[in-house]
């Protein structure tokens, strides 16, 4: 478990570093970058533990907020909610192929967007919220989905190998 935490913590630092340096801008499409933290939270929840995903999401989100100078706790709550709700398919569906992953991704992205909209309507300016809805949300969803597929396969491989032990 400590190993998992350390690996995820390192991943988190890497993502934050990427996100808030110019490095990730190279892969930006129309100034929209993929939400890597979302992918990790979702896959952590599905493959490891929703509780772990929730804490990971909270920490990552708050780190994002602190680093980005935004509203502290805003992203924390969004990713915590996504992480918390990853318990939904647990023990019912075994997400082991790309199609199920895509379906799960769509579900959690809708959850993420909904929480963003709810919190955004309370805490964000209307212009910012409108910009996200009009210009960023769809591109971000597609871009993140595309990026999540290889990461899903890596997670799937690593986790299934561990389980086989």
């Amino acid at each position: 478990m400590i190993k998992k935490i350390i690996i995820n913590a390192l991943c988190l630092l890497a993502i934050v570093t990427l996100q808030y340096t110019n490095v990730i801008q190279f892969i930006a499409f129309k100034e929209v970058v993929p939400d890597i933290l979302f992918i990790l939270v979702m896959l952590n929840g599905i493959f490891i533990d929703p509780m772990f995903a929730m804490i990971f999401g909270t920490a990552g989100g708050i780190l994002f907020d602190v680093m980005g100078g935004g509203i502290v706790g805003f992203n924390g709550l969004i990713y915590a909610t996504v992480g918390y709700l990853t318990f939904l398919p647990q023990k019912r569906i075994d997400i082991d192929n790309t199609i199920l992953h895509i379906l799960a991704f769509i579900l959690y992205f809708i959850i993420k967007a909904s929480v963003y909209l709810i919190l955004g309507s309370i805490f964000l300016e209307k212009a910012e919220l409108g910009d996200y809805l009009k210009n960023r949300m769809l591109i971000e969803a597609v871009y993140t989905l595309l990026l999540s597929i290889p990461i899903f396969h890596i997670y799937h491989k690593v986790c299934s190998r561990k389980n086989s032990f």
């Binding site: 502290v72 706790g73 915590a80 909610t81 805490f123």
Partner: peptide, 13 residues
């Protein structure tokens, strides 16, 4: 845990 996290986040916000 989720409720506690949510409350903390909201307070932070």
């Amino acid at each position: 845990t989720y409720i506690i996290i949510a409350i903390v986040c909201v307070l932070l916000m």
